[in-house]
């Protein structure tokens, strides 16, 4: 998931009887699957939770460009380079759709970005891992975007209209990302040298567990899920989504002729799902706290981009003002 551990600030969920007439009216709309739109009344905690979740989602898209940017100048062919650039441009676009949706809640884009830079706002833990070899571009597309799709497909039905519409646009574009990633791996496995095949396996070994962590902590460790589900901001639990992802990914992994770094991963005839091993939650919380391999580098890169672009934004503004004055004096 691109948003992990989003706080709702709510200790206990109110029953319909405990709600004020406004709250009840709101909840009944949500229950009836009527989308909430920007000008509709909404509980303050709902608005705040959405701003947190959507901004975290947007930050993830933007920071998500960095691990891939690492390989633009090193892509093996012109075709791969063009595909990679198109994908990175999409991530920027997805970030912008989401910031736009967030602004409909009255949040300020600059303020939210400032929170990211100060370490007050989160982004997905997955982007704090380095991309060390070319196969990582395949694995990131296949596993990371694959995990994002599982989450985002469900979010298309989220209760807030602008967020839901942004998700629909994003999902349309994501499947290209996953396919281009898988194709990079397929080509390496089918036509590559022994060394290239090992590169693929090494990449999967490094990204497998972090991809499973993208869905967030297990349901029993996810205190905010219940309220988010009642508001239909969230539609399926972390564990449900993780299981869906594993079930659809393992056959693709086997088709590649690769393995997962999990000795407990096996098909369970009885449940009709794959069983898998325990996730290292210690690692997950450390990365989320800012102690992952690339946290500092990612934020430093984002800050640098904003700082070094200041003069461009100021120049554009000065030019716009000048043009406006010219027009006014001509009129």
């Amino acid at each position: 998931m691109y948003a992990q551990l989003v706080e709702t600030g709510v200790k206990k969920i109110k029953s319909l009887e405990e709600m004020t007439p406004e709250e009840r009216n709101f909840q009944e709309k949500v229950d009836a699957e009527v989308k909430i739109e920007p000008k509709n009344w909404m509980p303050d905690a709902y608005r705040k939770t959405l701003v947190r979740q959507i901004s975290q989602h947007a930050h993830s898209e933007v920071v998500g460009m960095l691990p891939e940017g690492n390989w633009v100048t090193r892509a093996p062919t012109l075709k791969r380079k063009l595909q990679l650039m198109a994908k990175i441009q999409d991530e920027a676009g997805h970030g912008l759709y989401l910031y736009s949706a967030m602004e409909t809640l009255g949040a300020d884009r600059d303020e939210e970005i400032e929170k990211l830079h100060q370490g007050k706002a989160k982004y997905s833990s997955i982007f704090n891992y380095p991309t060390l070899n070319w196969a990582d571009m395949g694995t990131v597309g296949w596993l990371v975007d694959g995990a994002a799709i599982v989450n985002q497909v469900v979010l298309q039905r989220t209760s807030y209209g602008p967020y839901s519409r942004a998700m629909i646009r994003i999902c349309k574009e994501e499947s290209f990302h996953q396919r281009q990633g898988y194709q990079i791996l397929l080509d390496l496995m089918r036509e590559g040298t022994e060394e290239q095949k090992q590169m693929v396996q090494d990449s999967i070994n490094r990204f497998w567990w972090p991809s499973l962590m993208m869905f967030g902590p297990s349901d029993d460790q996810s205190p905010n899920s219940q309220q988010s589900m009642a508001w239909k901001i969230k539609r399926k639990s972390n564990d449900e989504l993780r299981q869906m992802f594993i079930d659809q990914t393992v056959p693709q992994l086997e088709f590649l002729g690769c393995t997962a770094p999990d000795p407990d991963l096996k098909w369970n005839e009885e449940t009709g799902h794959y069983d898998f091993g325990e996730i290292d939650w210690q690692e997950f919380y450390e990365v989320l706290k800012g102690n992952g391999p690339c946290n500092q580098e990612r934020i430093a890169t984002r800050k640098k981009a904003i700082d070094e672009g200041t003069w461009v934004r100021q120049a554009a503004k000065a030019y716009a003002e000048k043009q406006q004055q010219k027009q006014q004096s001509a009129a």
Binding site: L96, Y97, E173, Y319, A320, Q323
Partner: peptide
Amino acid sequence: VGSVHAADARMALENARDLYTRR
């Protein structure tokens, strides 16, 4: 389809083109 920030209308058009009509 959504919104964009821009210094002026001309730039808004260019940003909208990049953001909302890539395909």
